[in-house]
Structures are given as structure tokens and as C-alpha cells.
Amino acid sequence: MRQLYILDTNLRRNGKHMAEEQIIPISKFNKLKKSTSKKVTISVQNITVSYNGKIAVDNISMNINQNEVTALIGPSGCGKSTFIRCLNRMNDVIENCTIEGKIILNGINIYNPEVDIVKLRTNIGMVFQKPNPFPKSIYDNIIYAPKLHGLVSNKSESDDLVEKSLTEAGLFNEVKDRLNDSGTSLSGGQQQRLCIARAIAINPSVILMDEPCSALDPIASAIIEELIDTLKKKITIIIVTHNMQQAARVSEKTAFFHLGKLIEFSDTSTIFTNPKQKRTLGYITGRFG
């Protein structure tokens, strides 16, 4: 007999949300669970985000493993960006945005009012769609956050940290002679790597990347992808991307979002070769989205 595991939240909400593809065979679910032998860094539990009462992210639960790349794919407006911004509470600055549910990071719910949002964001860095270096020198871009958090106390420590961060981001050799040039004078790909260097300067355990390559050419994108591959040894990466080849190349796990719902979340190879849901298949084969 085919056992069914039904996402309990759909029942709780209302019946009409129960579509066929939201019913996942329990055997599959168990297998999925077994395969996650790695340590879970972030556990998302029933997150619902709404703007002015309009639901943007609908009841999503997923576990994100340590030192893995998790890709979020889906058509525009499906809630990927909203979801990723929940993970370091970037949505807090948006007015009329309400968030329900729990996100557990290292055993602590980050939406607990006692959580220090500054510490959270030093732990979970973020890289944005459009490279957004501050219009200051490359050096100042990197050192801004460490100074803010008191991670460096003197000039030589600062110099070391800038060099280390830029090296890890694979940018040091390109900019070592012009650290005092404006960050905005770099090319798009370099700017994005500067933003990554800026994020890793404060030693986060997770980096969220919201379509980091969408404004870059294929060569710059390839460099960023290589960088992601190197970084994941130390850092857990969650990446939103529109580029399915990119998701397939860089990620271990892929989540497919559609209309604010998590349709399918599984190993990247499974998603791209043998998706369980019709909508996933439709999206990855380019039939919609």
C-alpha cells in the first residue's frame, strides 16, 4: 500500500491547497531524510511571509545542510528572494511584512525576539542580485563590517584581514595594487566578488546569494561559480538562481518554488533528471516559468 505523507500545513490551512503534487510518498520522504546524513545548519519550519496580508511565501519547511550549496529555483515572483531574505531577517526592514513560523539556526529560532539581529547577520552573510559595493575604496568596503563589529583592532590586522578576504574571494591578485580605488570602479564580476569578500570578512557560517550572477556575463558567472565551489568547504551557501544550468552545476540540493510554495526539494541530480512533480518537470524543461 502506498503510504502518503501529507504536508500537514496544507491541511491546516485549507483544503483547496491540497494539490496532487504536494503529496509526497512517505517512502520518498524517508529516503530524503536518510540522505541528509550531513549536519543540518538551518531548519526552516512552516515559514509564511505576507506583505500587506498578501501571501508571498506559503508555509515552507526545509532543512539546509552544512557545507552544501542549496539552490532555489523557480519562475519570477515565486517567493525565492522573499524566502532567502527571511533567513537573515532582511525582511525586517520592510514595512507591512509579517513572518510566521520558525527558522532554527544552531538550535535557536532566529525569529525569537531575544535574538541579536546584528549577531545573526554576522553569522549569515548575504550577496545581492546587483553588485552593491559601497562607493568607497576596495579596502574600506572589506573593512567596514569587521570594524563595525570590532573584529580588528589595528592597521596590520586590518591589512591582513583585507588580504585574506580578497584572496578567499579570488580577487586579491586583480586588485592588490589598487586597494584604494573605488569599489565601483571594478567590473561587474569583480564587484560581485568584492561583495562576496566583504561578506566573508566577518567569517559567517552561511552565505545567502540572491541571483548573484544575473547581472554578469558568462565568464564572470563561471568565476563566481568556481568561487562558490571553493567556499562551500567552509561555508554553507544558499543560492537563488534563474539559471538552471547554474543550479545543476553548483548545488547539492535544489528546491523548486512556485507561487510561493515549495514544490519539490531534493538532491540536485534527482530534481534535474527525475523530478517527482509535474510542475518541476515543466519548469526545468522550459514549459513554463
Binding site: M90, V93, V118, R121, G125, F128, F134, Y144, H149, R198
Partner: peptide, 20 residues
């Protein structure tokens, strides 16, 4: 994006506004 960039680095809203 400048505000987001600073906030994502752990700056408070006030720090983001006054520093960046």
C-alpha cells in the same frame, strides 16, 4: 542596495544610514 548591503553585513539601521 546600499542600505541592504550594510544591513546584511550586520550594521544596524542607524549605522547603515549614518555610515553608508
Amino acid at each position: 542596495t546600499i542600505r541592504d548591503g550594510a544591513i546584511a553585513l550586520g550594521a544596524s539601521k542607524m549605522q547603515a544610514i549614518f555610515n553608508q
